[in-house]
Nucleic acid binder design. Sequence first.
RNA 1: AGGCGAGUAGCUCAGUGGUAGAGCAGGCGCCUUACACGCGCCGGGUCGCAGGUUCAAUCCCUGUCUCGCCUACCA
Length: 680
Amino acid sequence: MVATTRPETMLGDTAVAVHPDDPRHQGKIGKVIKHPFTGREFPVIAGSVLVDPKFGTGAVKVTPAHDPNDFECGKRHNLPFVSIFDEKGLVTAEGGPFVGLDRVEARKQVKAKIAELGLERGGKPHAHAVGHCQRCNTIVEPMISTQWFVKMEPLAKPAIEAVEQGKTRFVPETWSKTFFHWMNNIRDWCISRQLWWGHRIPAWYCAACQQPTVARTTPEKCAHCGGKDLTQDEDVLDTWFSSWLWPFATLGWPDQTRELRTFYPTTVMETGYDILFFWVARMLMAGLHFMKKVPFRTVYLHTMVTDEHGDKMSKVKGNTIDPLEVAQKHGADALRFALAWLTNPAAQGKNIKFSMSNVEDARRFANKIWNATRFVLMNLDDYNADQFADRTTEGPDGAEFDLPERWIMSRIQRATEEINTALEDYRFAEAAQAVYHFIWNEICDWYIELAKARLQDPAQAGERWKIQGTLVTALDAAMRLLHPFMPFITEELWQKLPKPQGAPQSIMITLYPIADPRYVDDATESAMALVQRVVATVRSLRTENNVPSSVRPKVVLNVIDDYKKTILDGYRGLVSEQARLGEIVVRRAGEPPTGAVLTAMAGDIEILLILEAKADSGPERAKLERDRATLTKDRDHLAKKLANPQFNEKAPRAVLDKDRARLAETEAALAKVEAALARL
RNA sequence: AGGCGAGUAGCUCAGUGGUAGAGCAGGCGCCUUACACGCGCCGGGUCGCAGGUUCAAUCCCUGUCUCGCCUACCA
């Protein structure tokens, strides 16, 4: 008794296989079976590969001409290969009484005939794995036919060696494992395709001797018998069979063109990881075979772009996006930036979940850049680019520029460094995010804001050209850093920026920024960080306590060291402007002011906001209590850590010093919070 | 079944041996003369689970669970 999901194929059976160790079927191996319909006689064979004794009845019918596994089995056991379907899916003469039936009809009738003869032994539901056409869902019928293959092993070997020797490397490197696994187990490549268009296979069959003649041009006569009646193979070549020639065929090969000499091999091949075998590995093999050199030195593989649910885009499913439509709606820059933002080196099984909201975010970013540039241009009426050309952080008198100018110059270098490093490592998302952060959070949120009031202040007219020049410098750097990610808007805006004599005609031919260590300024950055911290804390205090933006309260800053006093004293104007304050007093110590006072801590700096009248102390108390909880937790954690003798003994000096300093700061801040709470 | 990955804030994802970050989403307040495609502020995470190594683990090791991808197979 055998089980089958496809009864109709029994017409082509030429054996029944059982497992050699299966006690149920021991005596049957070698016996001959008579086919109930065709009358054909065939053996019961022992098949340890094909048969899983735990599955079904432990006996399997073998149809070598219509099943890939049975085909292999048929070769192993020298079984006849009986084709029971023709190319239209109709039963051939081999099918005996069923001849001429469509395969679907044949299935019904074979089943009925089995029942009629009393041979049916029941059935049960079974999830089968018969192949279906992806587009029309028709069952695919495996059949035997003559097709052309490329012998892959001799081609694979040099490619494996090239990767082993590092002539081509994968980014991320982990893909070389997958590559080796596939290449070491490579199968011959079937290049025949039964499509109605494409390059016809250059093989001709002789009517006289049936032998194939393979030639570059249409042959006059059969290479074997000289026969003149030749017919070309109907099949066409697999598309990848021409694609694997891409790296050199596109450059004029087989002619030794200038382009071929210049661009072969190329540097980076970039594609989705699903293309690794289809194309990348094959280009590598073809390149080594025809050009004797690898086609590219680096293969960058990114994850697949899927829809927002993580489903692979496919025309059949209808979840594809049309890049041209997206570009039409949101701009090519937005589309490009959105993809860059999401593109990091491929981790297997992960993908880029592409959604329109990413494109919309990128478009907002483009809008932001546009407006920032507009602001700068609006303030350049009296600006002379040539005057500023060689100045960056100090004036002709040798005097340093003001804090914001020195700060953004330093930040330009940091951003440039970060972006370049990320790009060199193929971490495109990180690079894109770094540009975004630099432009939005540093240039727009801080530098432009710090520039505004000073540009309008008649008392600072002498500073004006420095601020203007620095704004232009920052935008110039920003546009050039962003250019690979948003080529169109950056060119447009860059063209509008004032430039000194002799500047390049297009942003495309400017140099990509390189960090200049001369402008990296740690002291300036930490001073600015202090200003930012105090401003942020005051803003938070005001917002949480509903102090309207029209009110400009006086503030007292109690600091615990001279460094902070000097910095905050020196930049009271900036703090006052950004935090919308009135008078600012910075002091080392003093009695807490009486009356309507709001208190908050910026690290260990105590901020006392003095109001006309104080209303509800609830929000202030809640915030101070939250601070107290956090600070207490931090203090306990640090104290416990530092009390551990093994920590003191084994931890690096720098870590110890840092933690000790942090404990001291935390304790000081906590004491001030406690005092403020007591006063409430 | 074998191979390869991933599990971190509501979502999408960064990240580092020294007490966690972004974008978006959410809440509150603002038309503060570049931008409401905006500005300011706020909330939110025992970094899948269990062991181990270490002075110290989200990060290293082992096991485990879940999810995904690739390859093979499913009479």
